[in-house]
Amino acid sequence: MVNHPHSNGPEGAHGDHGAPHDHAHQPHGDHVCWGGGGCGHGHAHRLEVRSLRVRYREVLALEDVSFATECGRSLALIGPNGAGKSTLLKSLAGLLTLDAGSILWRGQPLTGKSHEIAYLPQRGDVDWNFPLTVRALVEMGRYPNLGWWRKFSGHDADIVLRALTAMDLLDLQDRQISALSGGQQQRAFIARALAQEAHVLLLDEPFTGLDQPAQENLSNLFRDLTREGRLLIASHHDLRTVENHFDDVLLLRRRQIAFGPVAESFTKANLAQTYEATATA
């Protein structure tokens, strides 16, 4: 499911820290869209946000957010605390009611029920003591496809197996979810998104709390997933690593400050505008 080699570094550099390997499984082309012009009938699936305004608990949390991106890209949401990063992710996941504006996925308004969009919670928000094994967590990803009662078939089991394999979790599948390292926990949730056959992965601070090797591993994984044609959107707070982990960046401070490829938009001027005076706030 995840292709090699990685684009960064010399050959084999990615293999150090248990980075997921999977040479046996090809991407399941009919489910996953393809970026870089290779998407289905010549177009990458597009996610478009138009003049978004969202209130969160009565407070205006986001306004004037407009951008468009597509499968095959990774986008970092950058901004100070309370800038609206999580609100934007939750809006994209269909968890919040929009005050104004629209979110279009593949040309259609997003209803929040699409199995093609997966939301991955912040690690701190997960109840790690829940009696759940890694495998059972990944199996949950089949729910949007199966509904309440349809039988869990061999086909579903195959997809779960592929997701576990791709995330290098096969040996850990019977572990309770708290008995994993931070990086493994992150991969378990990504595996669930893969089992869900999601095109878009929305991640809330995925790098937070991971040590250096685990961060590198996850970064490599991001590259694999985007090369496969998935769209990754993640809130991120470590400004030093933005360039290394992401293609595009959206600078937010309740409003959109800048959006574009990291090289063009992740500038000192834009950052100053995003973070200025927040220290005194």
């Binding site: 996941a93 269909g94 968890l95 929040g112 029920k113 199995h115 969009i117 997966a118 939301y119 919670p121 928000d125 997960v126 109840d127 829940f130 759940l132 949950m140 729910y143 949007p144 199966l146 309440w148 009662w149 869900q196």
Partner: peptide, 21 residues
Amino acid sequence: ALQRPLLIYLFEPHIAASLGV
């Protein structure tokens, strides 16, 4: 009968809706 959506709801009450629960 509700076991499948119920477990997701219990595990992640705040984001279960994004999985169609």
